[in-house]
Amino acid sequence: MQNFLGTKLQLRIVPSIDGQARTWLNRVTGAAVRAFLVMILIVMPSVILPGIGTDTKQIVALMALFAGALVFVEYNAVYPSLVEFRDGAPFNRIRYLMLLAIIIMLSVIVADREDPTTVSRLFRAVGVLIGQSLDFPYSPVRLATFLMSDNASAAELMEVRTAAGTAYFLSILSLAVFVVVLKLAGWPSTKSAFNVWVNLPTFEPTAGGDVIDRLERDARFNLAMGFLLPFLIPTLVALGTAGLPPATLTSPQTLIWAMAAWAFLPASLLMRGVAMGRIADMIRMKRDRNIADDPALAPLANH
Rank of each mutant, 00 (worst) to 15 (best):
F85A: 05
V108A: 03
F227S: 12
M98D: 03
S268C: 05
A164Y: 06
N222H: 13
R287S: 03
A238H: 11
M225A: 13
M39K: 10
L41H: 03
A69T: 10
L255N: 09
D288P: 01
G51N: 11
G131R: 05
F91D: 07
A163W: 06
D288C: 03
T254N: 15
L37A: 11
D218S: 13
E74L: 02
L297S: 09
I104M: 14
T166P: 00
R34W: 03
R272Q: 10
F36Q: 08
H303P: 00
G51P: 06
Q58L: 14
V119Y: 14
S153T: 15
A298N: 07
M44C: 08
L11A: 10
I212G: 06
N302H: 10
T235Y: 10
A155M: 09
I104H: 04
G19H: 11
L41P: 01
V237G: 08
W262V: 03
K57S: 13
L175P: 00
M158H: 06
F203W: 02
D294H: 05
P50R: 09
L182I: 09
S268N: 08
G165S: 05
A35F: 11
K183T: 15
R121L: 10
L269E: 12
W262P: 01
T202Y: 06
A167W: 04
F146L: 12
V177M: 15
D55L: 14
L100P: 00
V181W: 11
L147R: 09
L70Y: 14
S171W: 01
R95H: 11
I130Q: 02
M225R: 06
L170P: 02
E204V: 08
M271C: 11
L232T: 11
V181D: 07
G209A: 07
P90R: 05
I42D: 06
L82V: 15
A111Y: 06
I283H: 07
D213V: 10
N302C: 03
A101F: 14
V180Y: 05
A260Q: 05
T117R: 00
A89F: 13
P90C: 02
G127M: 06
A247T: 10
N195S: 14
